[in-house]
Structures are given as C-alpha cells and as structure tokens.
Amino acid sequence: MVEEPQFTAKGYKLGDPAHGQRKHHAEHAVYVKTLDAAAALIERGFSLWMGSQGKRASLISPESLRIVRAS
C-alpha cells in the first residue's frame, strides 16, 4: 500500500521536532502549501504526516522518508 503526504485544508501537515515526544499533537502541527516547502522542513528534521485511502494518517520520521526531486 502506497502512502502519500497528508494534504489538509491548511496544506501539508508536519510535526515540529522542537516539541520532542509531543510533536504529533495537533497544537504543534506545522502546515506548508507545497511539497518543496515540506521537503525543506523534512531536511531540517521535521516529520511528515502520511496516509493512504482507508488508512489513518501517521507521523513518519525524516529518517524513514526519501525525497526525490525532478531533474
């Protein structure tokens, strides 16, 4: 099953590493409008909420993500 970044009405949802074990709480969510902006934050240690149809979204650590840019 392929998971994709969660896009909400506010944008792509990320977890801020500054909040440690509480980064998954809604009040600590950071939203960006583009995948490029999300990728820049992931490179700085932010986690990304990802999910797939029929599956609840989960917070994925930056170490488990692979960023692929078009060349």
Rank of each mutant, 00 (worst) to 15 (best):
H28V: 06
E43M: 06
R69W: 05
Q53S: 08
V30Q: 07
V68F: 06
Q21N: 11
A29Y: 11
E43D: 12
E27H: 13
E43W: 05
E27Q: 14
G11I: 04
L48Y: 00
R56L: 12
I42W: 03
R66F: 04
H28E: 13
V2T: 09
A9V: 07
R56F: 03
S64K: 15
Q6D: 04
L65K: 06
E63R: 15
F7I: 09
A9Q: 09
G11M: 02
A40K: 15
G11D: 04
E63M: 09
P17R: 03
P17I: 06
K10Q: 11
Q53G: 06
A39S: 15
A39N: 14
K10P: 00
V32D: 02
K55D: 09
L59G: 06
W49Y: 14
A70Y: 07
M50K: 09
S71T: 08
V32L: 05
L65D: 10
V30T: 10
L35T: 14
L14N: 03
I67G: 11
A18P: 01
A37G: 08
P5I: 06
L48H: 03
A70V: 08
M50T: 11
Q53L: 08
L35A: 07
V32N: 02
R22K: 14
I67H: 10
G15M: 04
A39P: 11
D16S: 11
E4G: 01
